[in-house]
Design a protein around this nucleic acid. Structure first.
Lengths: 181, 181
DNA sequence: TAAACTGTGACGCGGCGTAATAGTAG
DNA sequence: GCTACTATTACGCCGCGTCACAGTTT
């Protein structure tokens, strides 16, 4: 019995079975194998891929990191300890912010074209920022109140604060300035 | 002179010159030609592409629509009147919203992994929404004040209001609810 | 003649999906 | 022998960038 219980999970899966466990297609796992991202634990005499518990655990991490949008190459570097995880994630956050910035810009252009070129003079950033401060004043907040509000936001959830400022279309410089303020 | 002044712009550009006018690479225009998106107006005896005013105008629209993120295929359909512009733009807005949703989700996952799996029970949406209301209360706003604030935001810049609510990670249903409120 | 252009065609990127063909397991 | 798997190889997508090689213009 000790021999049986020593190994907590002796399951060995074929490629399609493993895919089903994670909602992935067979072609995906074939691709990962070819890239060297996820190699099968062993092979049968006929060359069938066999995935053991170790491969299963590795795939779990792969799926997790892909959910954060990391490239397969980057994931491989992290899992093979060629690169610290935190570094890859921080870079990924920067990349995602750039992408969202780009998406916002495209959304703005599409909206403008849809409505037939609205107020092309004033930049959207200024508009949105102005609208915000105007609304804060409308509910009776002074500049000091706004300052206090930013401080609280920054201390509470700095990351959300960052994203909020960026969502106004502000440049990196101004975001930094306000967060230090 | 009448013959000269009848045509307002007789400029004919070579491929690289045209590219410089729009900040595009030669390879880009070669690509557009191959796709049938932008054909040169004429050709020299040696086969050199020549772009006239009409091509210039068309390229201007192409650049504009690409700034909204439309695919080259979609742009071609619009410019060749196989598809109404508004329809393509509306579909593009939907696509961009999906992409931003996806980006937000990836950003959330990346942040969670960075901070070492923080409170996996509570959803990020709830957290962010809670943080927001908490901060509003912290500066002395009542529920009625918040209501008034949302109303103002919605009337002023409904689109920005929509994006702001989505940036909190709220689902489409809740966004709709608040906007109607 | 040399530099700076032009043409065409092919390959590469990322992350797989989709055949096509042939062998294997139950 | 039938069906459901498996293997490998190659091509397609999108929007170009980047050779490589040859001809043209200045």
């Amino acid at each position: 019995m000790a021999g049986r219980s020593r190994k907590p999970d002796g399951t060995v899966l074929t490629i399609t079975a493993l895919g089903r466990q994670f909602g992935l297609a067979r072609s995906t796992l074939l691709h990962y194998d070819k890239l060297g991202l996820l190699k099968p634990t062993a092979s049968t005499a006929a060359g069938y891929r066999q995935y053991g518990p170790a491969a299963l655990a590795r795939l779990k991490r792969i799926v997790q990191l892909r959910a954060a949008g990391l490239s397969l190459e980057s994931i491989r570097n992290v899992l093979d300890s060629r690169r610290p995880l935190a570094e890859a994630l921080e870079q990924q956050v920067l990349l995602l912010n750039r992408q969202m910035q780009s998406n916002r810009e495209q959304l703005r252009v599409a909206s403008e074209l849809l409505s037939g070129a609205v107020r092309p003079g004033i930049s959207r950033a200024a508009l949105t920022k102005q609208a915000w401060t105007a609304m804060f004043r409308a509910i009776g907040l002074s500049d000091d109140d706004m300052h206090a509000w930013h401080c609280r936001f920054e201390q509470d959830t700095p990351e959300a604060h960052q994203r909020f400022l960026e969502s106004l279309g502000l440049g990196a410089a101004e975001v930094k300035r306000i967060r230090k303020w």
